[in-house]
Each structure stands twice: as structure tokens, then as C-alpha cells.
């Protein structure tokens, strides 16, 4: 655990009117790790993402990124520091093609000013070609080359979701924040996603913070997990320890979770796109049979 802290959050508090959405939340993400953020629906996970990216302005707390206090920076300045994110309801611009979307995400490393582009200065033409080539590379990595020139809005959900991920990567981030990357994916696709995430971490040395309901994925790829409940940190730890944590089980099965959700038998429910708040972590026994392989 001696790796450098890339993201450090101290005492984050967020209120909407009388509703305490986040309450004194602190967490740390170390460089080159995949960290999971889990919890029942309404626990404040996405709100936490919105605070970290500067979309919400929390009433209290501080956010440090890459050793610097970014608490007061607007969203786009945080993005330029290297924070990228995907969205639960997709951060894709429907009116643009997949290629244009990826090139849009390359905005901050275009290497020329908007004015120079508008005046058509010589260097900009060249840079545009380079950007297009880089975009094609990213598109190919994610297997989107067949739909590269299609409008994003006309593509199926799964493809747009992949496009969202490609865009987050195209910003050339230090940290990738994924909001339910596996929702709406088939179990096989979710497993493939696990491979991709590990590859991003190991080959591009990316740090990943992800909200996820899909247990096998969390257990498979996460190095460390934070559990949120009612806006507070319930517990934290390695995935297998978390799965056996009594409070976690109580939080999911008790007050927060809706009745009838999951956990009958040993099958692992996969959360649907906007489905019910399934209980994702299997409570009985250490060997959940939904696990793809023995790794932890």
C-alpha cells in the first residue's frame, strides 16, 4: 500500500435542501489501482462522482487530485488535470458520429487554439488529421470501427456505452471514473469488460474508480472497495473481506434494499440498466458461485 495517493477526499458533505446526500465521506484512491464504490441505490454514489468532477458543489470537504487541492476548480479544469468519467445515462453526444465523439473528447489535447482552427491556420489541418488517426486507433481498440461514422444516437445502448468509455479514455486521463460500466451488459460482456479494465490498468497505468452493482466484476477486478450507505462510509477493504462483512450484508438486505431483491439461492443477480436495486454481493459462504474464476 505504499503507492502514491492519486485521489484523496476528505470529509465530503452534500445536502439538497433537508436531505443529507453525502455525510463526511472520506476516501483515497492510490495510483494504478482499481477501486470500487458500492452501496444500495440512493446511497450517494453518483452524487459522490458529481462532487469529485465538480458538477455538484458540496457544502463541506476537500478533494485532492494528484497532490493538489481541486475543491474549488470548475468541472472543465478538473478534467484538464486528468479526471475522466463515464455516465450512467451515457456521456455521448447523440448528434455526433462515434468518430466525432471521440475527437470531441480529445478537445484538451488538440494542440491548437479554437481561434486558430477557425482561421484555418496551417498547423490545424495537420493536427486534425493526427487527431482523426488517434481517434481511429481508440475506436479500433474498442471494436467500434464498423460504426465509426454512424450517429451515436442511432446506435444500440451497448455500443453507445462502449463509445462513452472510448471517449473517457480519449481525454488521456490519469484517473478514470466509471459509473456502472457493466449495467445493461450481458454476463459475457461484463466479463470481457473486466479484462479490458485490467488491461487499462496494467498497460496504460490508469487508475480507476468505479461504481458497480455487478458482483462478479467487482470481485474480479477491484483491488479495494468502499461501501456507501445513506451517504456515509459503511466500511472499506478488499473485496472478499467486504463480501463477508456483516454490516454490508445488513445494509443491503435490511432497511435500504427493497424487499424481494435477489439472494434466494446462490445465483448472482446482474443489475439491469435501470432495474431494481439488486443485492449484488452474495451473503452465503465464501465461495460465491457467480465468481468467474478464483482470483480476487
Amino acid at each position: 500500500m505504499s503507492r502514491r495517493q492519486l485521489l484523496k477526499v476528505e470529509g465530503l458533505s452534500l445536502r439538497f435542501g433537508g436531505l443529507q446526500v453525502l455525510d463526511d465521506l472520506s476516501l483515497t484512491v492510490r495510483e494504478g489501482r482499481i477501486v470500487g464504490l458500492i452501496g444500495p441505490n440512493g446511497a450517494g454514489k453518483t452524487s459522490c462522482f458529481n462532487c469529485l468532477t465538480g458538477i455538484y458543489r458540496p457544502q463541506g470537504g476537500r478533494v485532492f487530485f494528484d497532490g493538489k487541492d481541486v475543491s474549488h476548480l470548475p468541472t472543465h479544469r478538473r478534467a484538464r488535470r486528468g479526471i475522466a468519467r463515464t455516465w450512467q445515462n451515457l456521456g455521448v453526444i447523440d448528434a455526433l458520429t462515434v468518430t466525432e465523439n471521440v475527437m470531441l473528447a480529445q478537445h484538451q489535447r488538440a494542440g491548437y487554439s479554437a481561434l486558430a482552427g477557425m482561421l484555418g491556420l496551417a498547423g490545424t489541418w495537420h493536427r486534425e488529421r493526427e487527431l482523426r488517426r488517434d481517434a481511429a486507433e481508440i475506436i479500433e481498440y474498442f471494436g467500434l470501427e464498423d460504426v465509426a461514422d454512424e450517429r451515436a444516437g442511432e446506435l444500440p445502448y451497448g455500443v453507445r456505452k462502449t463509445c462513452d468509455m472510448a471517449m473517457a479514455l480519449a481525454t488521456d486521463p490519469k484517473m478514470l471514473m466509471l459509473d456502472e460500466p457493466a449495467s445493461g451488459l450481458s454476463p459475457e460482456e461484463a466479463l470481457a469488460l473486466g479484462t479490458t479494465l485490467r488491461e487499462l490498468r496494467d498497460r496504460l497505468r490508469l487508475t480507476i474508480l468505479m461504481i458497480e452493482h455487478h458482483v462478479p466484476l467487482v470481485a474480479d477486478v477491484c483491488d479495494y472497495v468502499y461501501v456507501l450507505n445513506f451517504g456515509r462510509l459503511l466500511t472499506e477493504g478488499e473485496p472478499e473481506a467486504i463480501q463477508r462483512h456483516p454490516e454490508v450484508i445488513a445494509a443491503y438486505l435490511g432497511g435500504a434494499a427493497e424487499p424481494g431483491a435477489g439472494s434466494d439461492g446462490g445465483t448472482v443477480p446482474v443489475a439491469a440498466a435501470d432495474g431494481p436495486p439488486d443485492w449484488p454481493l452474495v451473503p452465503e459462504g465464501p465461495h460465491s458461485d457467480g465468481r468467474p474464476d478464483g482470483t480476487a
Binding site: T53, G91, I93, D94, T171
Partner: peptide
Amino acid sequence: AAVRNDERIAATLGI
């Protein structure tokens, strides 16, 4: 185009 369609998405892309 991003600003016109969704300012939040635009901002998280560094715009």
C-alpha cells in the same frame, strides 16, 4: 456541439 447538447458532458471532457 457538446455545449449545445449537454453542458455537463462537455465540461467533463475539459470544455
